[in-house]
Simulated assay, not measured.
Amino acid sequence: MPTSRPRVSPTPFWYYLGAVYALYGAYLLGRVGGLLSPYLPASLPLPALILLDLVALPALIFAWLWRDRPPVALVGAVVIVTVGMLAGFWGLGPTAVDAAFHSLLPGKAIVMIGSSVLMAGYEARVLWEVVSLRRRTNFDVVISRKTAVGPGDSWVVRRWKKALAAELRLWTYGLVRKAPALSEFPGDRHFSYGSQSANASTWMAWAVINLLPLPILHLLMDKISPGVAYVSSIMTLLSALWCLAEARASRFRPVSLDSKSLHLRYGLSVERTIELSGIQVARSLSWKDLDARDVTRYAGFGGVNLRLELRGGEVIHLGLDDPRGFLDEMTRLKATLRT
């Protein structure tokens, strides 16, 4: 029996917003002649140009992107077409640009309202997802399953799932007080990284630094522009929430080892599984490694104390609370693999 591909929910807001602005950009281009107008008869009516801009070209690129999921292919087609259209639009000159924008003020208002509605709807859906996740004993593992990358996923879908996982973890680690159950994380032995070089404490300090001047800054900016003051305050609150979520993730989201794999989780966004057989060298970091180039660094606001060299040539510098225990456990597991 054929199996259906797993669905990812909710769809990232940026895909909806990208589609709205892509269509709006194509409409702007249609109003000033269309990207294809230099190559078409002058007698061709304007609706035909808009039809070519909005239907024909996206349809061709949609067919090219069909190996992705249809919604992703559709939005990707519209965005790709519109990037070219907007480049041509700005190439028409400032006079044509000004005329187009002045003639489309109602359309701009519609797009702004539509974007706000989409954003509010998306965030409401994400928060509803967070409410359901908070009932799980380990919401992090559930998020990983929901956003797992499949072997047939393209670069677009992989990036989409990675962004979705990071955002869900932002809200869950930032708003859900309950820590995820350590025993449910894949792996037999778990290693934390919140205490090394005051990693978690530094994240918390930045959250406080963001919040302390907020009331005064809001009052000062409100005298200049109330709208800017509110937008700035909301962004400051979100940045403080992000720092808080990173601090809690560094305490409760471990790096793990089992008999075959290293489960590398770091902060809100990093999640990798590396086969132990693919790790050539695992050792403590020395002063000679501090100026190393082309290194993947996982330490947050802390410091690195481990060096992992992979078979593919990648070098990872990692910061853990118990580097000696990690090396001893990895040595034991790799010895077991050889027997």
Rank of each mutant, 00 (worst) to 15 (best):
H263W: 07
A124T: 01
R283Q: 09
G174H: 07
L133T: 04
A59P: 00
L244F: 10
A56H: 08
V141F: 05
T202N: 03
R134T: 13
L310Y: 06
W203E: 06
D328T: 15
W128R: 12
L54R: 02
V126Q: 04
D322E: 12
E123R: 15
F139R: 07
D328I: 15
Q196S: 12
P47L: 02
A179L: 09
Y15K: 03
L219Y: 12
L104A: 13
A19D: 14
L46K: 12
L262Y: 06
E167V: 01
R169G: 02
M221H: 09
V78W: 14
A148R: 09
Y173F: 04
G313E: 03
N199T: 04
S116E: 05
V32W: 08
F252K: 03
V117I: 12
P38R: 01
V131W: 12
E314D: 07
A56S: 09
T236H: 05
L320A: 14
L318Y: 08
D53Y: 08
A63T: 14
S144T: 11
S197A: 15
L49F: 10
R67P: 00
A165G: 07
A96L: 02
D140S: 04
Y266N: 04
L337Q: 15
G91I: 05
D294W: 11
K162D: 11
S115P: 03
L268A: 04
L237Q: 09
G34W: 10
S37P: 00
R31T: 10
L127C: 07
V270M: 02
V315Q: 15
G302T: 05
L23Q: 05
W206Y: 14
